[in-house]
């Protein structure tokens, strides 16, 4: 008898567990499941290009330094957001972002369209010591970025992993990842032309940190900041915004 009772009690605990799972999972399933088919509703962007290996490395530095804690990359459909930062962000623009960096806090301004708004030189000075260019700023200084060489040898495996989660990098891109990262930061090198061949004419090839002899983390981060909002022009086409994307050559 006690044995039987014991079993019954155990069952109630298990039944209880099941009830919690049933109650709690449905909200998530109902909200998230339809997003699996979100591709059908995401706007089309034929001109969408992928992050170059250098930009991807810069993105990883942006993540490593926790930039997302103070900077959003999501312009909302609000008038003041649009007038301050540019056309509101479209879902397609972060289609290849693993993970997304939409952010949740603006201790500093939104960066979704910061690409091309400032010169490379400005970014380097700003990252080295923000208060040299914006005296009121409370952003940390990142002087070590310009001192630290960028790790190039494993960029191929980064691209391969990105492909395994759904980003359409080609074999050629993966094989040339390290070369392309070098070439994008050293415009005079022979590797430079391959970057624009593989990633498009719009790709910015530049000595981002002003030093052409080596590729630093500063090069990568500035390259990433300069491409923000410029992977596709879809946001400028599909909205009423009269603005043109900023062009650093202007």
């Amino acid at each position: 008898m006690p044995e039987l009772l014991h079993r019954k009690l155990e069952r109630t605990a298990i039944g209880f567990v099941l009830a919690i799972i049933v109650a709690a999972s449905v909200g998530g399933i109902v909200e998230i499941a339809p997003l699996f088919t979100i591709d059908e509703t995401v706007e089309n962007a034929d001109d969408m290009r992928l992050y170059t290996p250098l930009e991807l490395a810069g993105r990883n530095i942006y993540i490593r330094e926790g930039c997302y804690a103070c900077h959003s990359q999501m312009i909302r459909t609000l008038r003041d957001d649009v007038e301050r930062y540019g056309p509101f962000s479209l879902a397609v623009e972060s289609r290849y972002d693993h993970p997304m960096l939409w952010g949740s806090k603006r201790t500093g301004p939104d960066l979704a369209r910061v690409g091309g708004k400032y010169s490379d030189f400005w970014h380097v000075a700003h990252l080295t010591n923000p208060r040299d260019v914006v005296p009121e700023s409370n952003m940390p200084a990142y002087p070590w970025l310009a001192r630290t060489p960028l790790r190039l040898d494993d960029l191929g495996s980064h691209l391969r992993t990105q492909r395994s989660v759904g980003v359409p990098y080609t074999d050629e891109m993966i094989d040339n990842a390290a070369r392309d990262a070098f070439g994008q930061a050293v415009p005079d090198s022979q590797q430079a032309s391959g970057v624009t061949e593989r990633y498009g004419e719009e790709t910015q090839v530049s000595a981002f940190d002003g030093v052409t002899t080596r590729v630093t983390e500063m090069d990568a981060l500035v390259a990433y900041l300069q491409v923000l909002g410029r992977l596709t022009k879809a946001a400028y086409r599909n909205t009423a915004a009269p603005e043109q994307p900023p062009n650093p050559n202007d």
Binding site: I32, L35, F36, I38, V42, A91, E93, S94, R95, Y96, D97, H98, P99, M100, H158, T161, Q162, V165, G166, V167
Partner: peptide
């Protein structure tokens, strides 16, 4: 790298 991208993520 997370398997989720963009809006899903």
């Amino acid at each position: 790298y997370t398997i989720w991208a963009g809006v899903q993520d």
